[in-house]
Amino acid sequence: MGNKKLMTQEDHPVSALVFPQQPPPIPAPFTFHRFFVDLPEYQGPCDLLLWLMRREFIEPSQVSARQIAESFRPKGSRRTEQAEDLFAIACLAHLKSCLLLAEESDEEAEPETGEEESEAVARQALRRRGFQNLAFRQAAGFLQERLRVWADALARPADAEDGTGEKELVLPQEPAALLVHALKGLLAKITEPQVSVPRRRWTVPFRIRTLTQILRFSADEPYTFDRLCADCQSRQEIIITFLALLELIRRGRVFAWQESPFDPIYLIWRNQ
């Protein structure tokens, strides 16, 4: 369950540690006096700090991990609390290390073995990520500049009805929705051929004759009402069959029988 907390910047215990010396410009979310956060788990202010950092409300480079670590050290009275504090501080250090490059050079480093080697690999990976991040920030800056310029070049709105415009296909994400989307596309393409089917014209006397023939020659194997209507193609034909059957029962030619409620209704021809 998520813990909803209503925080203000002033009463936040971490806020004093985040900007210890010179407070930088306040990021946009903190310009409000009240700021809602939805933490999956809240065990202390470090959780909130990590949450804010992961969502980029706080720049990791502006957070002093050392001061936070020092402030938590005496507070943990039990081992579990101390472990939680350590874990939070480790997460904080990891986040910071993602942005800050290691200072050692691989080329000049001494040959490393075991843990040192894995550390070197991790350091290299962090360095690469930091480098890629920086490259993409440059690309993002370029896009921002292009967006700024092109936002001033106004064109006829793209959502205007043009009748001939090809709308870009945006695929839904669920497989079932994909299928429905594909089905709709196919149905839209297909034009039904004009087919004319001559309609059968059943009458009650006609149906009495056909039912008589059917039931008479199936005396050994009783018919159910459902089976009798199996060849009906419309509601009207079922009604006609029903009326014909009632007439045959009235005349005493057919006997209807049901073993128990909701069981099939059997129709038996009565030879007189």
């Binding site: 993409f136 993002a140 896009l143």
Partner: peptide, 27 residues
Amino acid sequence: RSALEVLAIITYHQPISRPEIEALRGV
């Protein structure tokens, strides 16, 4: 800013999945 960074990553690496984007950005 973060949306622009993600857009830049997608632009240069498309098609790309969310875990791959997050692996690049670290957030």
